[in-house]
Structure formats: structure tokens, C-alpha cells
Amino acid sequence: MPLHLLKLCVGADSVADLRAWTRMRRERQSGVHAHVTRMFPKRAEELLDGGSLYWVIKGQICARQKLIGIEPFVDSAGIKRCALQLDDEVVALRPRPHRAFQGWRYFEPAEAPPDLDATSSGLAEMPEALRRQLSELGLI
């Protein structure tokens, strides 16, 4: 069973912002899209067995990207870093509140909210701002 990562998406106000940022980064760089972090996950093998990076945007888990590689490297200042290589597709999720934290956390599959297209309630057609408000009210 895959293991996932959970991380704050700093600077994005919505899933649409994350998608635009991912698209922009993909156009600027050649090769695989990656998110750089300081620490290398000790459970990398489990993460690469179908795991995703789940994004917390404005206090809600609401998007994910499939992890396709994890590469350690040393940056130009000589500091060890880790590139979390991500699939370009940003998958919207059924929003779920989550408090702020630093770094990333391991995230068990049983805790992960479902993809929007996997729900039959019509949430995918609803505007993202409305989904966010309904989630904050505990209605979805």
C-alpha cells in the first residue's frame, strides 16, 4: 500500500493557482517537474509505490500530485536537498480542513480525502470557492 506526503502549498490561494504555477514551472524547465525540500524522506520506497504529495492550501487539503521520483542533490551553496519529482497533473480533492505545520508529514492512505471525480455528489462541477466555504462550515 502506498504512503503519501502532506505539505503546505505556500503562495497558492486555490487549486487553480497551483495548476497555473505547475504549468509555468514546467514551461520554464526541461525534464521532470520537482518540488525541492531540505529533508530526504526515510520511507522513499513506500512513497514511490504509488504515493502522492497532498497539498494543504489555505488551511484545507484540496489537491494532490503523484510522486514519480525522489532525488537527493547538493545545491550551489553546498546544502543537501531533495527533489520530490511530481507528475504534472494536479488532482483536485474533496476539501478537508487541516491545521498549519512546518515541513512535510507522512500521510497514510486511510487519512487521504477522495479525488473530486471519485465523488458522486457533483462537487467537481461546483466552484472551488464554494467548495471551500462548504467545507469550512462542515457541510461537505
Rank of each mutant, 00 (worst) to 15 (best):
residue 111 E to A: 06
residue 117 D to E: 12
residue 98 H to L: 03
residue 81 R to W: 11
residue 74 V to F: 07
residue 93 L to A: 04
residue 115 D to H: 13
residue 119 T to F: 05
residue 83 A to T: 15
residue 72 P to Y: 15
residue 87 D to W: 12
residue 105 R to F: 04
residue 117 D to Y: 13
residue 66 K to H: 08
residue 80 K to F: 09
residue 62 C to L: 00
residue 116 L to T: 07
residue 117 D to W: 15
residue 102 Q to G: 13
residue 91 V to D: 12
residue 122 G to W: 07
residue 114 P to I: 03
residue 85 Q to V: 13
residue 99 R to I: 04
residue 113 P to A: 01
residue 64 R to S: 06
residue 75 D to F: 08
residue 126 M to V: 07
residue 132 R to M: 05
residue 56 V to E: 00
residue 65 Q to C: 04
residue 121 S to D: 02
residue 117 D to A: 10
residue 79 I to E: 05
residue 74 V to D: 06
residue 130 L to R: 14
residue 104 W to I: 03
residue 78 G to M: 00
residue 101 F to K: 08
residue 95 P to W: 06
residue 73 F to M: 07
residue 118 A to V: 10
residue 102 Q to M: 12
residue 64 R to Q: 10
residue 68 I to V: 14
residue 101 F to A: 03
residue 132 R to H: 10
residue 133 Q to Y: 14
residue 121 S to E: 02
residue 62 C to D: 00
residue 84 L to T: 11
residue 84 L to I: 14
residue 115 D to E: 14
residue 100 A to D: 12
residue 79 I to H: 06
residue 91 V to H: 14
residue 66 K to W: 06
residue 75 D to K: 07
residue 103 G to Q: 11
residue 96 R to K: 11
residue 109 P to C: 08
residue 128 E to N: 04
residue 84 L to G: 08
residue 92 A to M: 10
residue 132 R to I: 04
residue 129 A to P: 08
residue 116 L to V: 08
residue 113 P to G: 01
residue 94 R to T: 02
residue 123 L to R: 01
residue 105 R to C: 01
residue 87 D to I: 06
residue 115 D to A: 13
residue 100 A to S: 10
residue 97 P to V: 03
residue 94 R to L: 02
residue 88 D to T: 12
residue 125 E to R: 15
residue 120 S to K: 05
residue 103 G to C: 08
residue 86 L to V: 07
residue 93 L to R: 06
residue 85 Q to L: 13
residue 104 W to N: 02
residue 128 E to H: 06
residue 69 G to C: 13
residue 88 D to W: 14
residue 81 R to S: 08
residue 57 I to S: 00
residue 69 G to Q: 14
residue 127 P to L: 04
residue 110 A to F: 12
residue 118 A to R: 12
residue 71 E to K: 14
residue 74 V to L: 06
residue 74 V to S: 06
residue 128 E to I: 01
residue 103 G to H: 12
residue 112 A to V: 09
residue 63 A to F: 07
residue 88 D to I: 10
residue 78 G to F: 03
residue 122 G to T: 01
residue 122 G to F: 05
residue 87 D to N: 11
residue 110 A to N: 10
residue 108 E to C: 05
residue 76 S to N: 05
residue 133 Q to T: 10
residue 78 G to E: 00
residue 95 P to K: 02
residue 90 V to R: 13
residue 112 A to W: 12
residue 59 G to M: 04
residue 56 V to P: 00
residue 112 A to G: 12
residue 128 E to K: 05
residue 113 P to L: 01
residue 90 V to Q: 11
residue 70 I to Y: 13
residue 131 R to Y: 09
residue 91 V to W: 13
residue 78 G to H: 01
residue 121 S to P: 00
residue 66 K to I: 01
residue 132 R to F: 09
residue 132 R to A: 05
residue 91 V to A: 13
residue 61 I to T: 00
residue 129 A to Y: 09
residue 133 Q to V: 09
residue 119 T to H: 05
residue 82 C to W: 14
residue 70 I to Q: 15
residue 128 E to A: 01
residue 89 E to M: 14
residue 83 A to N: 12
residue 119 T to D: 00
residue 56 V to L: 03
residue 69 G to P: 15
residue 102 Q to K: 15
residue 69 G to W: 15
residue 79 I to S: 01
residue 67 L to C: 09
residue 77 A to H: 04
residue 101 F to W: 14
residue 124 A to E: 14
residue 64 R to M: 08
residue 103 G to S: 09
residue 65 Q to L: 04
residue 58 K to H: 06
residue 93 L to W: 08
residue 94 R to Q: 04
residue 56 V to R: 04
residue 133 Q to G: 09
residue 73 F to L: 07
residue 109 P to Q: 10
residue 63 A to M: 05
